[in-house]
């Protein structure tokens, strides 16, 4: 059935409120999670959740965007739209992971970075830019999973990984289809048309070389069976981490940089 879904239908699925989020993944995949708050500069941002946990007995740093499960939580997390404090916290935790030699696992599900006055005052752009630059140099394994919608630099800021995985019905794009339509055609109502043109589905992104693997979803979508979904993520994650185990820190950084270096570069062998 999934084969026949349109891009717009996948966008709707990716935004499903019942779809499992960062909290479900932490509960289902890790043990002993210890949350670490704050950017040590200005504040704490609920839209990003991070800390240390055990993954199959191995300490890892887990970071993800959080949308919240109740209206109260939604508001507290600004529906998963981080501000600069969130990105600076994420970067702090990544550097901490590097210090202690732990792999970094990130979960991405965000409408984008928060567009607000305070966010701009505190350097939203600078915070994201630093994540991109520093993340590219990390000498520990980094695996990212796009689990819902991954929009804009606000998603990419957690996605400069050795391996980028994506759930079957997740979407990953330059911005929301509504924003895309409103910028390009001054008409947000043409968002379904935008979905088809944007190449934002997992199969499209696989073909473009933007992601490395697709994780299957249970019949009907992740929200139908969170436990089954978590088991599927677990299989993919442990395989990826296992594959990265043999690489030195220097090789990990080099592989990551080289991967992103190739993106959008003119390919002499012509597009397949």
């Amino acid at each position: 059935m999934e084969e026949t879904l349109t891009a717009a239908q996948r966008v709707a699925l990716a935004r499903q409120a019942q779809r499992p989020g960062i909290c479900a993944f932490i509960d289902g995949l890790f043990t002993g999670f210890f949350e670490m708050k704050g950017d040590r500069l200005a504040g704490e941002d609920g839209a990003i959740l991070g800390g240390v946990a055990l993954y199959h007995g191995q300490p890892v740093t887990v970071i993800g965007t959080r949308k919240g499960r109740t209206v109260e939580e939604n508001l507290h997390c600004r529906f998963g739209m981080p501000g600069p404090e969130g990105y600076r916290k994420a970067l702090r935790l990544m550097k901490q992971a590097e210090k202690f030699g732990r792999p970094v696992i990130t979960f991405i599900d965000t409408p984008g970075a928060y567009p607000g006055i305070a966010a701009e005052e505190r350097g939203q752009g600078e915070a994201i830019a630093c994540c991109l630059m520093e993340m590219s140099t990390l000498t520990v394994p980094v695996v990212s999973v796009v689990t819902g919608e991954g929009n804009s630099g606000g998603a990419l800021a957690l996605g400069v990984a050795n391996r980028v995985l994506m759930l079957e019905n997740a979407v990953y794009a330059i911005l929301s289809p509504e924003g895309f339509a409103s910028i390009l055609w001054k008409d947000a109502s043409r968002h379904e048309e935008a979905c088809e043109l944007m190449k934002l589905t997992a199969p499209d992104l696989m073909q473009l070389g933007v992601i490395d693997a697709i994780i299957q979803e249970p019949e009907g979508g992740a929200q139908r069976d969170a436990a089954a979904q978590i088991a599927m993520i677990d299989r993919a994650l442990s395989a990826e981490l296992h594959a990265l185990r043999g690489m030195s820190g220097r090789e990990l950084a080099a592989q990551r940089m080289e991967k992103f270096r190739r993106m959008g570069a003119p390919r002499p062998e012509a597009d397949a």
Binding site: S152, Y172, L200, F260, G264
Partner: peptide, 16 residues
């Protein structure tokens, strides 16, 4: 689209 987005990571890594 997404390939434009990826240039952010590409240029930032080069600057690193």
């Amino acid at each position: 689209g997404i390939l434009s987005l990826m240039q952010m990571a590409k240029t930032s890594a080069a600057l690193a």
